[in-house]
Amino acid sequence: MRVCLIPLKTEPRNPSANLDRLGQCLEEIAHYQPDLICLPECTFTGYLYEEDDFKQFAEPIPGPITERMGQSARRYTTYLCFGLLEVAESGVYNSAVLLDRKGKIILKHRKIEEKPPFVNGDTVSSVDTELGRLGLLICGDLFNGDVIRELEPSLNLLIVPMARSFNKRSPDVERWISEERQVYIEAVKAVGVTTLIVNALEINTDDPSFGGAMIVSADGELLAESPHGTDTVLMWEFDRNGG
């Protein structure tokens, strides 16, 4: 199984430019024929949390973005995971979806470890696929013990889109290497499931997410990592049991 993590360079509040950037990236990696492509939290809008932004950028699921990404999944015959702002009758959620090779939504997760004005999700689910049993969390959910205990024990792979920043000083390679990287590794080890982590690389904003991606095995081994502070694509091939 070949997976591709894309820490997409994201300009907040400019989904059109971000979608164009993704389109170029997908063309560039198409010859690798990835089985699964993973994108960051709030992929096309950046991490937004103001009511005015919700009114302008939040979409239903299914909706225009899921339909457009479905076209990409079909075109490249790949599973595709991405984050978005989801509007529903109960409010706005920080959500992520997983599409199959035919562009069908097979898994949706609403972020649980989230702050107002978002509405918090309250369920954790997974799905059986040809790639194994896949689970989906978002950013801070990975560090919530109650959430982790709800994960299906038979998971083969956990996908975690993120939009993580360093308090207006992102990127910070020294901090990443000396502190943050090991925190993620220990969190995955506690979960006990091979995990794909992909972070947005935000631009033109005061508090940017710092990009990068990593793959950590169930026992806490760092299998692969793209450079901190970059949008470098991370490609990795491993067997269906997560090895």
Rank of each mutant, 00 (worst) to 15 (best):
I6M: 01
V198R: 04
V233A: 10
P153I: 11
P40M: 15
R101N: 04
E50G: 09
T43V: 13
A213F: 14
H31L: 04
A88K: 15
A163K: 01
F57D: 06
G145V: 02
R68E: 12
T195R: 07
K108S: 07
G121F: 10
E186T: 07
I61N: 05
R169K: 11
G135N: 09
T195G: 14
I105H: 02
G135E: 08
Y76K: 08
N204P: 01
R240M: 13
L48P: 02
V147Y: 05
P116T: 13
W176S: 02
T205E: 11
A58D: 06
I215E: 11
T129Y: 07
E114L: 05
P171Q: 09
R13C: 08
W236Y: 15
S165N: 09
D231F: 06
E179Y: 03
E114V: 15
L19Q: 08
V216M: 06
V3R: 00
V147L: 07
R240I: 13
T129D: 03
D122P: 00
I112K: 07
Q33R: 14
K111E: 04
I6P: 08
A17D: 08
Y79P: 08
K55D: 14
N18P: 09
M1F: 00
A190W: 10
F143T: 06
N167D: 05
T43E: 10
T10R: 13
D172P: 00
R74M: 04
T43F: 12
L48F: 09
L5W: 14
Y47L: 10
L107W: 03
T78L: 11
A218V: 04
P116D: 10
L196R: 10
A17N: 06
L5P: 12
A96T: 05
I148D: 08
A190D: 14
Q56W: 00
N120P: 10
G242W: 07
V198G: 11
V183A: 11
E225W: 12
N204H: 12
V193P: 14
L151T: 05
C38G: 11
K115F: 09
T77Q: 12
E186M: 08
